[in-house]
Design a protein around this nucleic acid. Structure first.
Ligand code: SF4
Ligand code: SF4
Lengths: 151, 151
DNA sequence: TATATTTAAGACCAAATACTCTTAAATAAA
DNA sequence: TTTATTTAAGAGTATTTGGTCTTAAATATA
């Protein structure tokens, strides 16, 4: 698996928050979100805390509390989320897991792997939450586990 | 990490076996191989057992025993090794870990991910152990952990 | 045939990841 | 100001992956 489970949940949740705030603006409840996305509340909370401390979300406690995007949805990319949760290693790690190996004395699959890694990076870097949510609405794409949130 | 540790070790070991048999033909000792590649003997043994039961290697017990390629090095691809150890899931799995999601109602990154996955598959499918070993010799590439085997 | 060598098999242990639970702190609203 | 609600923090548990160790079986060779 390229991304950790926590990271994929983080992406799905961020998209959910971006989508909700584009409608109702205000804080999005983690409890409600966890039900809609079918992700364990406590686990999701912890993941969102990472995004908050990374400066991508803000949170508020108490009734009507929850999380919200800190920047505009058009200014946060999927890459931002991934780096905050899994780190850059996703895009720098070696395919064959060799330490200290690089371009000077590469292994036989380095060139292809470096290119694929670059493609992945570019894919995430070029997608903002805003654009992605828009695409989801337009094309009726899915971004939740089995049952998509009702409406 | 795209490939499991076991899988990367399996690839490195297969290349080692292919390289050795191109010189000395006969069985390659797992003990010696584990020293040269700096991989734990017992762990390596277990991995090679998987490759043996997958029909990629043959083994022989006793003095002068070890493992050898079952088919010609030009007839075994890196993909064969990967499928034997990690399975096809490497190339079919969803980037966002969504179950039962496919092309009919895809998520916003499906197209890019499907293409990247396909590139990866093609990279491994197109590389035989034979060709790869040849490339290693010609270009003096590395395929062992820190210390490459001495000669 | 006896012995040393080597893989096979599987139990076992360790570390990382995934997930849960409890308690505390903040805050909105009654 | 009291209470209900909600996130924060961190301890605790489960599962998966990575790795070790022990014992058995095969076989070459002395
Ligand atoms: S050369 Fe191969 S082994 Fe080395 S970093 Fe690149 S992909 Fe990894
Ligand atoms: S559409 Fe997205 S979530 Fe669904 S299988 Fe493809 S990559 Fe995964």
């Amino acid at each position: 698996m390229v991304l950790s489970k926590a990271c994929t949940y983080g992406i799905l949740a961020s998209l959910y928050v971006a989508r909700e705030s584009s409608r109702s603006n205000g804080y999005v409840s983690i409890g409600k979100m966890s039900e809609k996305l079918h992700i364990s509340f406590h686990f999701l909370t912890k993941i969102l805390q990472e995004l908050t401390s990374a400066g991508l979300l803000t949170s508020m406690k108490g009734p009507k509390g929850g999380v919200a995007l800190k920047r505009d949805a058009g200014k946060i990319t999927l890459l931002d989320i991934i780096i905050a949760i899994d780190g850059m290693k996703v895009f720098t790690e070696c395919l064959l897991g060799m330490p200290g190996c690089g371009t000077e004395k590469p292994c036989p699959v380095h060139d292809e792997w470096a290119e694929i890694r670059e493609d992945l990076y570019e894919t995430f870097r070029s997608k903002t939450l805003g654009e992605t949510v828009q695409k989801i609405e337009e094309l009726d794409l899915r971004f939740a586990l089995p049952e998509l949130f009702d409406r």
